[in-house]
Write a protein that binds this DNA or RNA. Sequence first.
DNA 1: TATATGAGGATAGCATGCTATGTAGATGGA
DNA 2: TCCATCTACATAGCATGCTATCCTCATATA
Lengths: 145, 145
Amino acid sequence: MPFEKNASMGFVTNRLARLFAQHLHARIAPLGLAPAQFMTLLELWEGDGLTQAELTDRLDVEQATMANTLARMKRDGLIERTPHPQDRRAQLVWLTDKARSLEQPAKQAAHSVNQMALAGLGEADAAEALGHMNTMIESLREKPG
Amino acid sequence: MPFEKNASMGFVTNRLARLFAQHLHARIAPLGLAPAQFMTLLELWEGDGLTQAELTDRLDVEQATMANTLARMKRDGLIERTPHPQDRRAQLVWLTDKARSLEQPAKQAAHSVNQMALAGLGEADAAEALGHMNTMIESLREKPG
DNA sequence: TATATGAGGATAGCATGCTATGTAGATGGA
DNA sequence: TCCATCTACATAGCATGCTATCCTCATATA
């Protein structure tokens, strides 16, 4: 067969993603954060008052996934939601003080995981890898499903 | 802040892994397979009669994850389990004819997803990306947790 | 041999993600 | 104005993964 799992980009990507998630989880769990919550906060720290739909677009997850993540974040006191002033279907998502206070430590945690992963690569290698991965993302985004 | 999510290796890896999983899922679902089942079959097609512990080692997932995946595979008629002849705690995992018949079409599906992802890269680029990703995997494996 | 420790598995509980649906409000015509 | 269609969210159901426990059997050691 022409299929060698250790040379399969999909297989290797899955393994690497799980390792990243495990390390990130270990470092932000003490802050009371989970990985998807952190990812969502990255967007909100840039500016809150967004709708669920806007967050869904920017983070490239499905609407249902974001709905559940936001529900857990509200439960955990990281966000509040207010009615949208022009659209009664929508709500705006706002950061709590607690969530604001976590920006620096959480970003530091994520940064250190990235540094750990990149320890064996030079800066040029890292940029190269990132570039290739973004190329693959573009290729796979073209024809969804 | 020193953190730009679009330049974060962890962020990009997560996005790429989800895209791979979505495409693979779409292509093997018609065969009655899910991604983790396919990954497990890749090992078993090389030779069955393995214990859960051996599969856990080779695929780098946690024991509980493999236990659940094997339970679903048995439910779906992909594997059978027999008592280990020397160790009453363990069981051996065997492929069913159904699972054997899926080897070629499933590998072809996975291969085509990889090809699609690599469409924008030359062979040298792909090898380079794979190499860098394996380097990162090694770095993250060193200090678990 | 008796006991402590280890190894193989199963199960519970939870977070992420996805697809598929359902509901209510918004909107653009006929 | 009325209706078809769209859009914003919520919910259900399921697969993966992980950590934490628990049980049983295997093994090494006192």
